[in-house]
């Protein structure tokens, strides 16, 4: 195995939540959005990150990109990003680019599409001749499936799928080594989703970019990912090669996620057992003691409330944070 392009070590993101009705000097409450995530990413690898809303996926992405403050280590190409000076960090940003969830909101409505796509280039290489910038923008627009003669159009003149292609073009103009996709397809409708996912797959094959692909939809993630990481309340639940997560999930949370994926066949879909995960996501302001999933876990025992489960090695490259990963999970069926 070659050297990983990205090593994330015990990454934590904590937000201060001011106490309502408190004095200015009342210490704020701490909200831990990401609680100690570690993983490696090989060059050209795609890591899928799944979890329900509020599980800290997007915050994890923002912490790696560096738009939210975090503790822990983020080694990119062997260099700790969290310890760089702001100036050095800014220069490093050209190797890590991001694609956003809301395609239209990610584009400045007052700039033309050409200016938007060119922005990373003009920021990091301000001396690039205008003609070259234009040529590269148009070539890239063509590559992501946009007509190059639309460079002078404005974002509101495009559809959601086209806007996402613009976002992808902007992310690719500097040939980054790592692309972070924060739910790039959740705001798009299904046929457009497939186009965008396929475009990302092609680009990855051609350019060998490593990706972190975040989504709450497991069926999308497993299409594009080499490995999948399952998160819950800011913690790692399970991480494994994509086939293992889908085929032999070990963590009860993952098992519920897999079981909730609908089957695109009405007969099978009607007959399939429909286990439900009861309860809601606990508040991240006061997470459960021990294992954060225990409040909703059918297997939870006393030990789970006391001792946070470490990541157990449960197979080749397969990690699950559950004390009882080797026991079958009783699936609670939905009432008919």
């Amino acid at each position: 195995m070659s050297a990983p392009i990205l090593q994330v070590n015990d990454l934590r993101v904590t937000f201060d939540v001011p106490v309502r009705g408190g004095w200015p000097w009342t210490p704020p409450r701490k909200l831990q959005a990401v609680g100690g995530i570690s993983f490696d990413l090989q060059p050209g690898e795609v890591l899928g990150v799944v979890g329900e809303s509020g599980s800290g996926k997007s915050t994890l992405a923002r912490a790696i990109v560096g738009t939210v403050p975090s503790t822990g280590r983020v080694l990119f190409d062997g260099q700790d990003l969290t310890r760089l000076s702001p100036e050095a960090r800014r220069a490093r940003r050209r190797d890590i680019q991001m694609i956003f969830q809301d395609p239209l909101a990610a584009l400045n409505p007052r700039l033309t599409v050409g200016d938007i796509i060119a922005e990373p280039l003009t920021t990091h290489f301000p001396k690039t001749p205008r003609a070259e910038v234009r040529a590269r923008v148009q070539a890239l627009m063509e590559r992501v499936g946009l007509l190059p003669n639309l460079v002078n159009r404005y974002p509101h003149e495009f559809s959601g799928g086209q806007c996402q292609r613009i976002g992808i073009a902007r992310a690719l103009i500097l040939n980054p080594k790592l692309l972070i996709c924060d739910e790039p397809v959740s705001a798009l409708d299904v046929s457009v989703q497939a186009q965008v996912v396929n475009l990302l797959r092609e680009l990855r094959r051609e350019m060998g970019i490593a990706m972190i692909f975040i989504a709450h939809d497991l069926s999308v993630v497993r299409h594009i990912s080499d490995r999948i990481m399952v998160m819950y309340l800011g913690r790692l639940m399970e991480r494994a090669p994509a086939p293992a997560v889908v085929g032999t999930p070990r963590h009860p949370y993952t098992q519920f996620l897999i079981a909730s994926v609908p089957i695109p066949d009405p007969v099978l879909e009607k007959a399939r057992p429909r286990p439900v995960l009861e309860g809601d996501l606990p508040s991240p302001l006061s997470p459960p003691s021990g294992c954060v999933f225990r409040t909703r876990c059918p297997k939870a025992r006393e030990r789970c409330a006391v001792e946070p489960p470490p990541p157990y090695d449960v197979g080749p490259g397969h990690v699950a944070t559950c004390h009882y990963w080797d026991e079958p999970t009783p699936m609670v069926q939905a009432a008919e």
Binding site: V65, R90, R94, F100, D102, A105, A106, P120, T123, H124
Partner: peptide, 14 residues
Amino acid sequence: NKEFVEAAVATGVR
């Protein structure tokens, strides 16, 4: 707090 500002920050714009 709009994403296009975040995109600019993430790109490294001053």
